[in-house]
Computed example of a mutant assay.
Amino acid sequence: MSLQNSEMEGIKNLRSGSLFLIISVLLASIGVIIAITGGLFGFVFSLGTLSAVGAVSSIFGTLIGIVVLVLLSAIIGLIGILRIKSGFSILKSLGRDVGIGGTGTTIYLVGLIIAIIGAFLSIILIGLPILVLAEFLILIGGILIGVGFYRVGEIYNEGLVKIGGILIIIPVGLLNFIGFILAYIGLGKVKPLATATQQSFGPQVYQVGQGTIKNNGYAYITLYSSTPASIVSARIEGVNIMPISISPTVLQIGNNEVTMFFGNLQSLSPNSPYIITFTINIGGNIINISTTAIYQP
């Protein structure tokens, strides 16, 4: 799978995961509404007909409906969290600084599992402390997930995703719900960095081949430019390391062998791929392009 397709898959997983969580909350809310209104009205109606059997049947039917909705809501919510976890993992593997979101989903999932165990054990009263622990983990996981979404919004310069991330961080159910809605809408507007600036028409700058990063602090990338352009800056995504020097800074038409010196790169993982994002000036238009390079110690 190409870099562009992988990045798009990560974004799509975050978006679909957000949609699943939105649906999950809606189903749970419907269950609560049924519990408050439907069951009460059914019970009153049955009592009005002086039918004890009818009252019991009404309550039993309502409870079954609520249980089904809650169970369905939990399953859809679990799918949503797993998709979001997958999305963060894919983007992290591409060098995007969103690992905190993946950590949040892991903590959140652990909290859900503990909550299920605590719910069963609460019957014999020893599950209450477990439920408290589960709620704490879910709270922390949710905050980290929100931070992850905020970073996605920063990386792809999408304001709705950033605002959604902020609302997800706040531990209030309604704000979380609105946050995922905003994130879902914003993610639909996001384009992968690897393809966002490679348009079908007009000037193009893109990578040729595979770049390398050496343990002596140098990195080598080949850039093709369809027009004269200049490199404004560069950085290694995920670790936010910027080069001390870039040569050449002016790109000519055709292939350009770009050499960058970063200095100390001991924080990089051997034989791992990294994204180097270039900020380039093309005739007064500032664009960002992403390239890949393997760290070869």
Rank of each mutant, 00 (worst) to 15 (best):
A234P: 08
I253H: 09
G238W: 13
L133I: 15
A35M: 05
D97K: 14
S73W: 02
R83M: 15
Q204S: 05
I64W: 10
R15T: 01
A183D: 04
A52T: 12
Y206S: 03
L91F: 12
G48H: 03
I275W: 10
I280M: 06
A234Q: 08
G65S: 03
T195K: 10
G254N: 12
L265F: 10
N256P: 07
Y108I: 01
I81R: 10
R96S: 13
G186N: 03
K189G: 03
I286R: 15
G38K: 01
I79Y: 14
G42K: 05
G211M: 05
E237N: 15
A293S: 07
G141N: 06
L72E: 03
N271R: 13
I231K: 11
P228G: 01
G164Y: 04
T227Y: 13
G48Q: 09
P171Q: 06
N216W: 08
S57W: 02
P297H: 09
I126H: 00
I81F: 14
T106L: 13
L50P: 00
S6G: 04
Q266K: 11
G202M: 01
K85A: 07
V205D: 10
L223C: 05
F136S: 09
G118A: 07
S6I: 04
N264W: 10
L50I: 06
S6P: 00
I231G: 00
L265G: 10
G39N: 12
A234H: 08
G217N: 08
I185D: 03
Q252M: 12
N157L: 08
Q252V: 11
E154Q: 15
P273H: 04
P248Q: 11
R151Q: 14
G209W: 03
R15A: 07
R83Y: 15
I90V: 15
L82C: 06
M1R: 09
G263T: 03
L265H: 11
F60S: 10
S269F: 08
S122P: 03
A234W: 05
S269T: 15
L27P: 05
E9N: 15
N285M: 09
L175K: 06
S16Q: 12
T222H: 12
I246Y: 05
G284A: 08
I117L: 09
T37N: 13
Y224K: 12
S51W: 11
I34S: 04
V239Q: 08
I64K: 09
V147N: 06
I236F: 08
N271G: 02
G159D: 13
S267L: 12
Q207I: 02
I168K: 07
V70A: 12
M260I: 06
I282T: 12
I143M: 06
L139A: 14
L14C: 03
I244F: 14
G102T: 09
L40A: 14
G101M: 01
G10T: 04
V161N: 04
I100T: 14
I22W: 00
G188Q: 07
I231C: 08
L265V: 13
T197S: 15
S272K: 12
D97R: 13
L265P: 02
F261A: 03
F261H: 12
A115P: 01
T291S: 10
A229Y: 09
G65E: 01
N215Q: 04
G159E: 13
N216Y: 09
N215V: 02
F60Q: 07
G153M: 04
L137C: 02
I11S: 05
G284E: 02
I107C: 11
E237Q: 14
Y218E: 14
I11C: 01
A28C: 05
N281I: 00
G95C: 10
A229Q: 04
L133T: 11
